[in-house]
């Protein structure tokens, strides 16, 4: 049994791109409006999870494989730390907002907050990739019948 019914598949085909786009919007405008890296990352992950539930695991894994998700998880965490360390080089302290200090942009614009948008992007990548990966692993576990489990215990 691969995926759900035809209605679910058609609606998913239309809507998945919009969900992904909305996640990117939430991540990018986290410093201007409600949202941010965490909420946006979870929305990005849920677009892939919708794909997994509607079409089956293979389709979702062909878009974003398990190794790729694991790498993106690490890349997000490393990017967060690298930007924080760059603050040490350029601004003199860990986590200093050096971009906003040197180039204070016009307020209420996309590029107004300096480092904060970069942090949001890093966290969004990290949260989205790690949650998608853990969902794929949880959903990959097959059902073990009760008798089989008992047999396994007795053999040991």
């Amino acid at each position: 049994m691969k995926g759900m019914s035809l209605i679910v598949k058609t609606v998913t085909r239309w809507i998945k791109g919009f969900i992904f786009l909305f996640g990117i919007y939430i991540v990018l405008t986290g410093h201007l409006s409600p949202g941010g890296g965490f909420a946006g990352g979870v929305i990005l992950a849920s677009s892939f999870i919708l794909l997994t539930l509607a079409f089956g695991k293979e389709v979702a894994l062909s878009k974003l494989s398990k190794n790729m998700a694991s790498e993106l998880d690490s890349i997000g965490a490393l990017m967060f730390l690298t930007i924080a360390l760059l603050g040490m080089c350029c601004g003199g302290a860990f986590f200093v907002n050096f971009l906003h200090r040197s180039h204070p942009g016009e307020a209420f614009r996309l590029l107004s907050a300096g480092n904060i948008m970069l942090y949001n992007i890093a966290i969004g990548i990290k949260v989205g990739a790690s949650l998608f990966m853990v969902f794929v692993i949880i959903s990959a576990i097959k059902v073990v019948l009760k008798d089989d489990a008992m047999k396994m215990i007795r053999h040991k």
């Binding site: 410093h31 201007l32 965490a77 904060i116 942090y119």
Partner: peptide, 26 residues
């Protein structure tokens, strides 16, 4: 910070160490 959303400003600038710990726990 230049961020209009004060919650994000606290989360990622004033108290970014909290976010670092949170990311580590996750």
């Amino acid at each position: 910070t230049g961020a209009a959303n004060i919650v994000t400003a606290i989360l990622l600038d004033f108290r970014a160490y909290d976010t670092l710990g949170e990311a580590t726990v996750l």
